[in-house]
């Protein structure tokens, strides 16, 4: 029983079950799984532009997934990546529209702003946790909705571009666009930033004192506290950094893909990223691999719908099942004891 449970509660088991479920969804929709999967993978990996689009989705998922990884490793349940992503994108879009600077300067400024904004948003939950003992699961979740309302208010009202047909900010000047890796696609250098960040995060987690303390707090908070880790500082810092990574991701979507900001920035990347982080077993490098896998699902899902008539929403059911299966493993020590001191 134990071996069975371990096998199927691991990422491999989840993937196997997900593939089976996907096949089932295709059969229910009256499509042979072979046709369905070939449409899925053909759409995601069939040509240069398809691969580029898959990598765009990969990048969009990778940033929040890395942010979530950091928070989970630190024992904090950040389910607010969606809001942090949005706020980061909002900051980049609001300032980027009026920023006329050389590309390198603009990129640094806008991505930095996105990271700061996301960091503030995440740090807010961290501050509430550190000083008021407010459960971060609920606060990060609630802040998602506050972020959505704020963004919606700003793009409908003060930040709305008079030229735009929809509710969005003025477009970014070309000089503020992130350079593309593959011409005529939407794939910008943001994927390189994300991968570099993954290596950096792994280094920080495994090779620095800060990372050691962060993991200690995550795995044995009481031991960490007794060994002199400043729990309050660690709490808000972890969530702020986690939010900053997601915010940076939001800024790369604005500067690299959308070139404007509106509330359609994320179709739920921040939530899917939880699954990505868990499938990647909270190891930044494996998270990259997992993000690529989910990127295939996200971009191939559309092709699967168009070519094989399998509704793309089946993808979300599959993602949900993966999350459900992986929930059987404990990632975050549930902390119920009183205020961190």
């Amino acid at each position: 029983m134990n071996a069975y449970r371990r096998l199927f509660s691991g990422p491999l088991g989840a993937i196997a079950i997900a593939v089976a479920l996907a096949a089932l969804a295709m059969i229910v929709a009256g499509v042979s799984p072979i046709a369905g999967f070939s449409a899925l993978f053909g759409g995601a990996l069939g040509g240069t532009s398809d691969i580029a689009e898959t990598l765009v989705q990969t990048t969009a998922l990778l940033f929040p997934a890395l942010g979530i990884t950091l928070a989970f490793r630190g024992g904090l349940f950040n389910i607010g990546a969606e809001g942090q992503l949005l706020i980061g994108g909002l900051a980049a879009g609001a300032v980027g529209a009026h920023l006329h600077a050389p590309t390198a300067v603009a990129a640094v400024v806008l991505l930095g702003l996105g990271a700061i904004a996301g960091g503030v948003w995440g740090g807010l939950a961290g501050w509430m946790k550190a000083y008021f003992n407010a459960n971060e699961i609920i606060s990060t979740l609630m802040l998602n909705f506050v972020a959505a309302a704020l963004a919606s208010y700003l793009v409908v009202g003060p930040l709305r571009s008079p030229q735009a047909t929809g509710a969005e900010t003025a477009p970014l000047p070309h000089s503020a666009w992130l350079p593309l890796i593959v011409p005529d696609t939407r794939l910008s250098i943001s994927i390189l930033i994300a991968i570099a960040l993954a290596f950096l995060l792994r280094f920080v987690l495994t090779r620095t004192i800060f990372g050691y303390e962060l993991r200690a707090v995550g795995e044995a908070p009481e031991a960490a506290r007794r060994n002199g880790v400043q729990m309050r500082r660690m709490t808000w810092l972890t969530l702020a950094l986690s939010g900053a990574i997601s915010g940076l991701g939001g800024a790369t979507i604005v500067t690299g893909v959308m070139h404007t900001f509106n509330t359609e920035l994320s179709p739920g990347y921040g939530f899917t990223a939880i699954a990505v982080a868990l499938v990647g077993d909270l190891d930044p490098l494996w998270v990259c691999v997992a993000a690529f896998g989910f990127g295939i699902l996200e971009s191939g899902g559309l092709a699967m719908q168009a070519v094989a008539q399998v509704p793309k929403d089946a993808i979300h059911v599959i993602e949900g099942c993966i999350i459900l299966i992986l929930a059987a493993r404990r990632y975050v020590a549930t902390r119920t004891e009183s205020a961190p001191v």
Binding site: I318, G320, C321, A328, R329
Partner: peptide
Amino acid sequence: FKVDQIVAGMGINLIAAGGAAYGLV
């Protein structure tokens, strides 16, 4: 299975939303 209830809850949200959208089509 002593699952992580938060993670499982998020999974249920995704399944329900995706399942309803899939069902509509």
